[in-house]
Design a protein around this nucleic acid. Sequence first.
DNA 1: GACTGAGACCTTTTT
DNA 2: GGTCTCAGTC
Length: 717
Amino acid sequence: MDVSTILDPLNTAQREAVTNDSRSLLVLAGAGSGKTRALVHRIAWLLQVQNVPASGVLAVTFTNKAAKEMRARIGELLQMSPQGMWVGTFHGIAHRLLKSHWQDAGLPQNFQIIDSDDQLRMVKRLLKEHQLDETRWSPKSIQWYINGHKDEGRRAAHVDHHNDPHEKVLQKMYAAYEQACERAGQVDFGELLLRSHELWLKHPVLLQHYQQRFAHILVDEFQDTNAIQYAWLRVLAGDHCAITAVGDDDQSIYGWRGARIENIQSFETDFGNAQTIKLEQNYRSTSTILDSANAVIANNSGRLGKSLWTEGDVGEPLSLYAGYNEQDEARFVVERIEEHYRDNTLYAEQAILYRSNAQSRVLEEELIRAGIPYRIYGGQRFYDRLEIKNAVAYMRLAQYRQDDAAFERVINTPTRGIGGVTVETVRKRARLDNSALWDAASALVSDQSLTQRASKSLQRFIDLVDDLGAAVSTMGLADLADLVLEATDLMAFHGKEAGEKGRARVENLQELINATRQFEPEEEATALREFLDTAALDAGDQQADAHADAVQLMTLHSAKGLEFPTVFLVGVEENLFPHKMSAEDPDQLQEERRLCYVGITRAMKKLYLSYAESRRWYGQETFNAVSRFVREIPTHCIEEVRINASVSRPLNISNGLQLGQNDSGLQLGQRVMHSVFGEGVVLNLEGQGSNSRVQVNFDDEGSKWLVAAYANLEAMG
DNA sequence: GACTGAGACCTTTTT
DNA sequence: GGTCTCAGTC
């Protein structure tokens, strides 16, 4: 292959990123700067020019979708699919390692991956076992606690409870959970990473093997790595492997689930003399949109620093619309969508982005009223759907009877006369024998220690699953799936459900058969097992109407990585965006701002911002001010839209001073004391001199605007 | 074991 | 305001 095929389509910075040969390289890639392209071309460069064997390359992404895309694009560029190269998600790769080295990892050969739903059920079960009240110890918070520690690389034994009674219970539950997983041979998402990290530490020979193999590690979306992923990379890279990290600190929006923006900030020092290359030329948006995005993100501190630019047009100014209420806002958006559609912008080229899912309803109603097709991104994923989880649980039991999570799920689904009392008896027996639920059930039946009715029902269930199990070795995957749905009566059971729901469930189940038919196992003999692993690790991105021309609705989080000619960013109001929960903490506020940056940079040609002056929120009428982020956009980039007439006028909400600072001597997020209202946190500052005003969220009195000159606020440590 | 009503919840989500 | 969970009843 010609070097020019790899380098010619690139700009100078991209070319530098592709050919740079320092051992650690950080590519700071702004939104729309051709990040994936740089990554793909770098891999091609390594293979074709540096003659690195394909097996020497490890490329890590966060989502299956990104991994798939990278694979496809590498194949396209090289005109063949490179054999032996590892491209996958952190979890997929960790899983692969554990499967190969299950003994060294201390796992049973047929260990199962459990998803967060199974995890939650397990926690609930353990709470019952330990006689802890679910109202006092919410299962979700315990799950959160466990995953949080795993993300940080800590096992129950490493957690320091500081002798705090509450912490002690949490730690006890974490330990109990670890034990339960161990006994059942189950591995959750966090465990995949934690365990493969430990695998390397405990078996230096193995580590050395992989270090020698992977001379080049490439990581996408580096700003989203959490502590354990970072440690995993550090260990693997060792002192010799070359590592390329691609990411954008300004698009770090997953801090709340463990991602550490510091990782990208400390890469340069941690990975020894790293070189940094910035990709700042944007190929997506108009310069007006980029100027707006740059101005907003400039208000964040601690950035690595980057400024997007384009050779393209100035384009239209952003439009800001103040809706009377949320219906009015939705109406405005839908009218603009119709306008753009008449002007030859497809529905699918228009996206509505919002901060939280609850906002979609009003928009949907308005779209339905106008007869405009739409599609909501995100929401429940395919393999998370109830009917699919039921079917998969039967498949899991057929493969592996000791799968307690699957057992619990379908023991009485569809209902077959096995009630709570019987199940509780099974659980007790399992605890007593320290065995799996399946074995306990079998024992109870053969002991004849149950009522005849219960015993009969249980036996029927056991026979059913055994029949399915027997079919695993004789049938193809798709036929097996078909058999599962018929023999268990699941298809009929879900078909009976009322109305639209039942129909959708049946469709999904048929889609599951489809998926098994299209599944390509590495080996026929292990097809079921491979399929189950995929089902656990891959959400399954099939959406029935993925290709229809429909307006795209999604949260700002799910919009990352996508682009649309026309974008509506709705609900740009204080309390909504930035969200009330995040406004008080400076770090969280910065993350909200990055979210705003992500939102703005999704737009290619035209960006609308809108908010509602009054909004029903959880049944309450609320009145929110326009978002502070709007005020951070330069006035020349934005114009306010009034109904029936679009007037360009300067926004009188900005007074020359950047929001978040004035001469009151106070800072955002600072704790203050007021003689009447008590303690609170500074939410907002504006004006100066005698006009200087401060918004404070008081612990007891809620949020209030105060004139700084009279408020006599006392700053607290 | 299905149905019903009260009460709690309510930011973002991938693996 | 809407949704989901859970306990209680038939």
